[in-house]
Write a protein that binds this DNA or RNA. Structure first.
Length: 678
RNA sequence: GGCAGGAUAGCUCAGCUGGUUAGAGCGGCGGCUUCAUAAGCCGUAGGUCGCCGGUUCAAGUCCGGCUCCUGCUACCA
């Protein structure tokens, strides 16, 4: 029976390049998609750039161009990267499209009609000069928790606190610098409680979710009434203005997943199909692939919107974990944050496809990229075992071609063909690790056969030419089966294998029928081996020539300004402002971990002459207490004491870092505790 | 602190509804081979299945407790 399957990968945000972490998802999805096509099912693979929201708007502003220019540029980059990795979308759209607007508007009408939209007055910050409400990111002020200056209205980049913009101290508008006023704003909310029974049913009983996800939702959200979802944002906002609410825009997460449908519509229009045939027809499977960080958007809000819009609910939400490198989070400073483009400067796309596939199970576990393992898997599995089959036999039959009749092979071909349902089941379950493992067993068996038959010996005896041809016919057929089985993972390799043997390698059932009586093309290398240095090079933050399209001059990639984008320079201050801050060198005389605290160390700092301060520092993750004792640090000596859960902190230790990194500062040799920084 | 998940050979992981001597790949070690991109084949060593207790004729597999790790969450500079 032919199934009809609509598959999506989460929409990448148009605010940054595709990196190795993204690719876990797109490769996983693409393998699934290619597998389904290989099996003869009708598949639509759709994706789009997620383009709306404040982050895009601000970035565009900083770069002195319109958001539309920014997202057009990103879309080109994204699609180029995806293409290079063989990601076979049927259509790639954008959430900033006519189709997306219209579908969002349709769902919105239904929400209104079903009385699921409520308007509530929320006090928001208003810029009296510009006469606009201010989005969180357009208000700056001091963090209500840590007092850090120049923090945005949604969260503090210093201490990680999140808070409503109204709690910022000394707030001012980014536009006018004026002090914002509190004014009531009519915000629009989607009521979710009427949909709760339906969500309860779908999450707990439909089978669409992995068990751990269903548990997570049951315990976190569905155990109490769902809160109304705030879906509007006041202008200025890069997005769609809500049709019946002037000056209000849909929050980016409202229209982002709708992009799945919009991309489908554009594709249907292009190919003369009907949208309803994919999104409303019973029996069509809808499968979403996404990362664990966006679970609840896709398992609560999204099915709610689909339900209200009259669309079918997802039949499967396949959630994966994050990518780690060498057991750690990807980090720009360590060079492990690798973009797709950078990977391709050093390595082959199919290697990554195979490596990820060979590690991906059906669990939500994180996937760890281990350089040695990567080299080992590619070189021994693919080159040493699979490709080697062709390379050690094809040349012997270049002249003769394959035998006219398939020879007796002791049942090897039949046994490998008999594996097809087991391998298919593993692919179907997204247990690609199991699928590739099963295929590698076939490669082992085939190599054994080569060893047994020793074609290199047969070759020496002209009387045994037929036996040589038969042997190679068997091995090349076993190789052909493997190429077909791996086609979802390695489409390029399958194509090359096909060219060698005159097969299309594009139907699962090809594994059941031997190829006979046909020519064998001149053998060429099917896949190169990985040089370990190249992997090292990729993970080293090294000097790299700027690609033609990138504006910045060559520079150390760690100096690429990414951190500056993350945390822009603060407004100018006077020397007097600076003088207010009394920065001092201090010696750590004692340091102890606070067991109950996740991040905090309690430090005793000496400013010399018996003056000491107790300071709590959130550096537990980066420094062990014992490695701190004795060293000099920089502290803010005149910061008002702050009562904390574990005691009073009498100052603050200065450290640099982005995204949770922590780097303490040290003076050059000779400096002494108590000295002021001028 | 709450919630979710995990802890099985050096590494990455399988072990379904409890049942013979706990598995795979990689890596290690020994041997063979030389057709092949220094690839391949054969053999071999390695595990108190995190810890304690319980249920059972029988537990890696179920139950309780504990320890550690990861993630999410929480006003810990």
């Amino acid at each position: 029976m032919t199934r009809q399957i609509l598959v999506t990968s989460a929409l990448p945000y148009a605010n940054g390049p595709i990196h190795l972490g993204h690719l876990v998802e797109y490769i996983q999805t693409d393998v699934f998609v290619r597998f389904q096509r290989l099996r003869g099912h009708r598949v639509a693979y759709l994706c789009a750039d997620d383009t709306h929201g404040t982050a895009i708007m601000i970035r565009a502003q900083k770069e002195g161009r319109t958001p539309e220019q920014l997202i057009a540029d990103m879309s080109v980059q994204h699609q180029r990267d995806f293409a290079a990795f063989g990601i076979s979308f049927d259509h790639y759209g954008s959430t900033n499209s006519r189709a997306n607007h219209d579908i969002a508007a349709g769902i919105w009408r239904n929400l209104r009609a079903q009385n699921l939209v409520v308007e509530r007055s929320v006090d928001r910050l208003y810029d009296p000069v510009q006469k606009t409400f201010l989005a969180d990111r357009f208000v700056v002020g001091e963090c209500p928790r840590c007092g850090a200056a120049e923090q945005y209205g949604d969260s503090c980049e210093k201490c990680g606190a999140t808070y409503p913009a109204t709690e910022l101290k000394n707030p001012r508008s980014v536009h006018s610098g004026a002090k914002p006023e509190l004014r009531p704003s009519a915000q629009l909310f989607v009521r979710l409680t009427p949909l709760q029974p339906m969500l309860q049913e779908w999450t707990q009983r439909s089978g669409a979710l992995q068990a751990e996800v269903a548990n997570y939702l049951a315990g976190h959200f569905l155990d109490k009434p769902l809160q109304d979802w705030d879906v509007s944002r006041p202008a200025p906002y890069f997005g769609f203005e809500i049709p019946d609410a002037k000056g209000q825009y849909w929050y980016v997460w409202f229209d982002a997943p709708i992009g799945y449908i919009a991309a489908t519509r554009e594709w249907c229009e292009r190919t003369g199909q009907s949208l309803d045939d994919w999104w409303r027809k019973p029996g069509v499977e809808i499968v979403h692939f996404l990362g664990k960080d966006i679970t609840y958007f896709h398992t609560l809000f999204w099915p709610a919107l689909l339900h209200v819009g009259g669309y079918r609910l997802p039949s499967r939400v396949q959630i994966h974990g994050f990518l780690r490198v060498g057991g750690e989070k990807m980090s720009k400073s360590k060079g492990t944050f690798v973009t797709a483009a950078k990977y391709l400067e050093h390595l082959d796309a199919e290697w990554l496809r195979y490596y990820y596939a060979s590690k991906l199970g059906n669990k939500i576990d994180d996937l760890d990229f281990q350089p040695d393992e990567f080299v080992g898997k590619v070189n021994s599995d693919l080159v040493g075992r699979v490709v080697n089959l062709a390379s050690r036999t094809a040349r012997f039959v270049e002249a003769s071609g394959l035998s006219a009749r398939y020879p007796d092979d002791g049942g090897r071909f039949a046994r490998a063909a008999a594996q097809r349902e087991a391998i298919a089941a593993a692919y179907e379950a997204c247990d690609f690790r199991e699928a590739t493992r099963l295929v590698m067993l076939l490669a082992d068996a085939a190599n054994e056969y080569v060893e047994q038959k020793a074609p290199w010996t047969l070759k020496k005896d002209p009387a045994r030419a037929a036996e040589l041809q038969d042997t190679c016919t068997v091995v090349l057929n076993l190789f052909h089966q493997i190429a077909v089985y791996l086609q979802p993972v390695l489409p390029q390799l399958a194509a090359k294998a096909g060219a060698l043997l005159g097969s299309s390698c594009d139907r699962w059932d090809l594994v059941a029928t031997p190829l006979v009586g046909r020519p064998v093309a001149k053998f060429e290398h099917l896949m190169a081996r990985v040089e370990p240095d190249k992997v090292q090079a990729m993970f080293t933050p090294e000097l790299s020539a700027a690609p033609a399209s990138a504006p910045p001059a060559p520079a150390a990639s760690a100096d690429d300004g990414a951190t500056l984008t993350k945390e822009p320079l603060a407004p100018t201050i006077t020397i007097d402002d600076f003088q207010k801050v009394d920065l001092r060198l201090a010696r750590v005389v004692a340091a102890e971990s606070i067991p109950e605290a996740k991040k905090l160390l309690r430090l005793q700092l000496s400013l010399g002459g018996g003056t000491t301060r107790t300071v709590f520092a959130g550096i537990k993750g980066a420094y062990a207490p014992e490695q701190l004792v004795g060293r000099l640090v920089v502290m803010v000596a005149n910061l008002a004491p702050r009562q904390m859960k574990f005691g009073t902190s009498e100052g603050m230790v200065i450290a640099a870092g982005t995204d949770g990194e922590v780097f303490l500062l040290s003076p050059d040799a000779g400096a002494r505790p108590g000295q002021r920084l001028h």
